[in-house]
Amino acid sequence: MILFATSDKGGTGRSVTSCNVALRCALRGSDVCYLDFDFGSPTAGAILHVGSAARGIAGGRGLHSYLEGSVAAPAELDLWRHIERAELRPRPAGAGRLVLLPGDEGGGEFPIDDEMIIRCQRLLRRLAEEFELVIVDLSAGRSYALQLVLEVTARPALQAMITRWLVFHRWTRQHIIAAAGLAYGEHGIVDTGAAKGHDRDRLYDSIRFVRTAVPDPESSQFAGLLPTQAAWLQEIDAELQKLAARQRVGRSVLLGSVPLDPVLQWREQLIIDSDVWTLRIANLETNAALDALAKDVLDEDSWEGL
């Protein structure tokens, strides 16, 4: 499966959440690869604790160079060898492969040409041949990267593959409206995809949403609230639920919610067991939510058409 991770706005936690999903799927035994298609700011290496590729990879062998045609294949970093977290080395027994394809250091956004589309198609097809899950982390908004992958997935060689979409949004009014717009609005995913030759209904059915930084009024974080504040939180939450349903991003297309967690917000890092149990910096709920998200991503049932 090729999974495109996108969001309408920046700062939704798209990259950090999808990196965590990639890690957890690999720990469950799937072979996973993660492509940093956030061309304007290729920093997936930083989230994945790969110091050497924190701002993209040096030496002109990243995804930018590959798509521009200056290398025959982009660099593939075996994360079990490159992650700088002692708990994840050596490769945990039973884990699948976990590979990062970083962008180029200093790489930026670029307009798309036909050659690039062919190269991108060739790369995604080959990776889908080798990996059970290929996560493509796209730039926020209606970017060149989004255009590129919508073009590529409409091509015959990739039409046979399973391609799915995850739209990340924070749990606010503005973000809900923006996420719905990116998916179903004018020049959104469905709209643009259909214009490029996708089957509209199929594309529509392949989109799911992930809510990030969701405050849970029931959680201990909010235990010290005044009764009036607690009531207000409940009220806002209910309002947002209604808005989401109206915008067609309600529960039926929800793949998961990740709670508000300082480790995700400030450090933007991988959350592993020791963060929850030994260091006690991450919340248990976050851990459970990420686990559930990883499980649902790989579960066919959660992607069934409506």
């Binding site: 072979d31 025959a72 294949a73 492969r97 060739r122 097809r125 080959r126 889908a128 041949e129 080798e130 990996f131 059970e132 015959p156 060689a157 046979a160 593959m161």
Partner: peptide
């Protein structure tokens, strides 16, 4: 290697193939 990899890609992109291998394997 690049010439070879490209040829392998070309064969694998053949429209005769349904792109649904029974399992994943590395090259």
């Amino acid at each position: 290697g690049a010439v070879c990899g490209r040829l392998l890609d070309q064969v694998q992109e053949s429209p005769i193939l349904d792109q649904k291998p029974p399992f994943r394997a590395r090259r």
